[in-house]
Amino acid sequence: MSQNEPGGGAIIFGTFLLGLMLSQVPLPTSVEWLRPEWVVIILIYWVMALPERVGLGSAVLLGLALDIIKGIPLGLNVIALLVVAYLTLMLHRRLRMFPLWQQAFVVMILVGINQLLFNWFHGLIGTRSDSLIFLLPALVSAILWPWMFVILRGLRRTFRVS
């Protein structure tokens, strides 16, 4: 991913791997809807912090992995993540200036878009939610954002990922 830049690719890769793992940890049925969209928020962070390294390409790879994990037609998560990554790329300069709570709000909208697209795709394969509960992960992700931001920024600074 980086020929001309210093190291740290392993850190980015590691966080994505962790995100993929966290997104398939089994949860009890009652709190299944509260699972934050780990992969999406980690992607948003890296795109915001290092837009020249992490972008649409990473979104495609992560989307493919998520499609396999969720067992849905290949490409659906790719589309959703591409849209999120693209919007984040457009917004990244502004996002960096925002205070944390405002960032969290934008993250909620971005994850919400991801969820909307995803729910729409589910309509195509015949399993669509009939309530707005599918938007709950967006809220949980937004609540989690400040912590994720601080942790990931800490990682980035400690290991000098740039």
Partner: peptide, 13 residues
């Protein structure tokens, strides 16, 4: 990339 992804979905289905 978006067009490719959509093509992939169609191909998979």
């Amino acid at each position: 990339l978006l067009v490719l992804a959509i093509a992939l979905v169609v191909l998979d289905l």
